[in-house]
Design a protein around this nucleic acid. Structure first.
Lengths: 353, 353
DNA sequence: CTGAAAGCGCTTACAG
DNA sequence: CTGAAAGCGCTTACAG
């Protein structure tokens, strides 16, 4: 591989001149620039990014760690779409992504540390939103630029940059849609209970129920850990409630909603005539289930993109003022939700739009 | 960030000793090692990977470029699963992935060049399998370690490492399944005609048809460019063939099969009673369509994993002997295929298993 | 506009 | 087992 010295020799200039031509900032006479450029072309020279990074302490690279690489993680649109958005933003700004896997959540932190302390990235996008792991505190200790995808714990709110879906409003819209259809017995199937998003959505679920004067039955709340069997199992449990069983299910992602659909079909319950089902994420899959899933569109690609953009301005402008975005979500009405069956409750407020 | 000198000062040794402790290869007295380690711990020291790379010319990083980051690219399981496999293998071997996006195929090559010539990766996994772009030749020129996901052009066969699905056999199995069901008018809906995989599968389709003495009608062959509308459009075209219209469709991925399903439903044709449909990839989606798609499982995660493993042995052992893997694919029989309608052809060979 | 020199943070032959 | 020195390939103040 040709180096700056080889080019210098060939172009009969000092290596520093070659450097200046390639850094693009210094003023160089047109004649010299041309000589250097053609010598470089000739030798197939390209500045060594590693050497450059060592000197400038900039890598033009954004780090990320993929929380836990299990099979289903790539079935939901959540991660692939975030990845797509990140890639897009990185590409536009001539940055690259360096990505590492991790086994579970403690390992995630050590991977983050590894990347940052080994100086392979200028900053890092972090997706963890666990309540039981103080990722954010550890990150703040590290004194490393980062952007969180998800909500920060309240205490650190204004010290850090983050971008998240507006989970509260998303869930409120979803639950309100079901309430408008006359449902009063509404189940909430969350992901991992230790996940902040799960909690936020549950909170919004409870608030919305209460705001409509509806009771909340603890048996209507379950956690499906974001996978299909989790949704299936939730129905298995709740079917034992008899008359008190939910007439509508709201699931925190589409995979679980698919599991709910499967369980209901097995039980011979018609969707949406007898039971309504809502998912979350508007994954590609959700258009193709039977019936097609009513869901909440969460702009994950946009979120990934914003996160990278935020981080890039942070590391290039040294503008350390943290900022945050809350992305709007909207309902996607399809065929898995309908008015509550008349045997249950009268339709009190008319159809949804 | 603490450097090796800071640690050396604190541990009262020479910087080179600190280096030796962290490189793990040299012999160091237990006492010194402990002193160094505790000093490092104290200062939060971690060797700077960039500096190390500059010296050793090793990055412990594998490059990859994502061909074209358009929305649908992440809907099919193809790319996310390859990514998952790559991540898994990289993680196991303590490597990282550096990934860059690209806009189209010529840009892909320049991105690859950028990564390699700038020394940010030890080698690269390349997914391109275009016929009109001589990626492989360019790569060979660059003299950079790489592994191809896909088939190399015949001429370079033995010079390079690659891993691919056994597309020939996969398609043969698929078409044979349809033939066994009595179908004689079988459509092939490929991806991009300039894609090698598309060609290979088409070849296998034609061979299998001929081997059973079936005619091949040019109108039964179309290209859906791997997306849903592409499959939909193919049916739109072929429906004009009247009695000569296909009784079965084989699509080169599930997304196109879904489009075929949609078009057929719109036309009021029953699947599989009147028309059979097969997809490829066994994406998560394919289980949930109506009817559930008969498809071919292609182990993309395994392919991504193998590619990274191959590349890692190549760059660490300097074992430059190229090798290759052809991964087995198998049929996944579900509900979208059935015996040809009796008005068309008698069932000549019985049901498939 | 260009050259000469120092240095980014490591590694590694060479001595001892 | 440990130290001293050179160097990986760049960048960038400092001169002129």
């Amino acid at each position: 591989m040709a180096t700056i010295r080889d080019v210098a020799r060939k172009a009969k200039v000092h290596p520093s001149t070659v450097s200046r031509v390639f850094s693009g900032k210094a003023s160089i006479s047109e004649a010299t620039r041309k000589r250097v450029l053609s010598a470089a072309e000739n030798l197939g020279f390209q500045p060594n990014a590693i050497a450059r990074s060592l000197k400038t302490q900039k890598t033009h690279t954004i780090g990320m760690v993929v929380p836990h690489v299990f099979e289903g993680f790539f079935d939901d649109s959540f991660f692939p779409q975030i990845m797509r958005g990140m890639l897009e933003a990185a590409y536009q700004h001539h940055f690259r992504l360096i990505v590492s896997g991790s086994q579970g959540y403690t390992d995630e932190i050590s991977q983050i540390k590894d990347i940052m302390r080994s100086s392979q990235a200028d900053g890092i996008v972090v997706m963890s939103s666990r309540l039981d792991v103080d990722t954010v505190d550890r990150l703040l200790e590290l004194d490393t630029p980062f952007v969180l995808i998800g909500h920060p714990p309240k205490e650190n709110h204004h010290q850090i940059s983050w971008v998240d879906a507006d989970n509260q409003i998303a869930t409120r819209k979803a639950i309100q849609h079901l309430i408008n259809l006359g449902h009063k017995q509404i189940a909430y199937v969350g992901g991992d209970p230790k996940n902040l998003t799960t909690r936020e959505r549950q909170q919004a679920y409870e608030d919305t129920m209460r705001a409509s004067g509806l009771a909340i039955e603890p048996n209507w709340i379950d956690y499906g850990y974001f996978d299909e069997p989790g949704g299936y199992t939730a129905v298995q449990r709740m079917k034992t409630l008899g008359n008190n069983a939910p007439t509508a299910y709201y699931a925190a992602n589409d995979l679980m909603a698919v599991g709910i659909l499967r369980a209901l079909t097995e039980l011979g319950r018609c969707v949406p005539e007898e039971v309504s089902v809502m998912g979350t994420n508007n994954s590609y899959l959700s258009q193709h289930t039977t019936p097609a899933l009513t869901t909440v569109d969460v702009p994950y690609a946009e979120i990934g993109k914003k996160a990278v953009e935020l981080l890039i301005t942070q590391v290039t402008n040294l503008n350390k003022t943290p900022s945050s975005y809350l992305e709007d979500c909207h309902l996607v009405l399809r065929s898995s939700t309908g008015p509550v069956a008349s045997s249950n409750q009268p339709d009190q407020s008319g159809r949804s739009h």
